[in-house]
């Protein structure tokens, strides 16, 4: 089937099998391997991308369902050489270890902060509940999102995340 999908601002037209998963389209057709596959059931969230403003698990969406949509992946969140505040937060606050869940975690966090600029710790935890991390115990991920939120609000990010400098 013919699909036309805008990914990170660039429009792509492709002929795909109806059963091709969106995550495989991103990874194998477009070569955007930042989006990862960690499970087959939509639980781990490593494949999270933002489709028309909503974070979705791209292992549970067919490519043909994304026809005509705008897709953002981890490769598209930075502003050129300038990291997105969420990326910066994960770096500053040691929000990642193995890094495999990180692209999906970043996309869920970006989407969270776009709909709620000043989330509480509980709201952050609820916002990333669909993304599993096996390395961090989520502790520093929460700090990373707090850091990013403060930065996006124009506040001192290091104050928002008390443990950064501890």
């Amino acid at each position: 089937m013919e699909v036309s999908i805008t990914v990170n601002g660039a429009k792509h037209s492709s002929e795909v099998e109806p059963r091709l998963l969106l995550v495989h389209y991103l990874r194998e057709v477009l070569g955007l391997t930042g989006t990862h596959v960690g499970c087959d059931t939509g639980y781990c969230g490593a494949c999270t991308v933002i489709v028309d403003g909503i974070p979705i698990k791209s292992c549970s969406m067919l490519t043909v369902q994304a026809d005509g949509c705008e897709v953002r992946t981890v490769e598209g969140v930075a502003n050129g050489p300038e990291l997105h505040p969420v990326q910066e937060g994960f770096w500053e606050c040691h929000g990642l270890q193995c890094g495999f869940c990180t692209p999906g975690m970043i996309m869920s966090s970006v989407a969270l902060l776009e709909r709620n600029a000043n989330p509480s710790e509980t709201e952050i935890r609820q916002g990333i509940e669909g993304n599993l991390c096996r390395c961090t115990g989520y502790h520093n991920i929460v700090k990373s999102v707090q850091y990013a939120g403060a930065k996006m609000r124009g506040e001192d990010p290091k104050g928002a995340s008390s443990e950064v400098a501890s």
């Binding site: 930042g34 989006t35 596959v37 990291l83 994960f90 040691h94 990642l96």
Partner: peptide
Amino acid sequence: GIVRRKEDPSLIQGKGAYVDD
């Protein structure tokens, strides 16, 4: 001392090459 990780700029931009990549 606390030193930001050298690994991270690659991993947070989706540039990390795992086997499947």
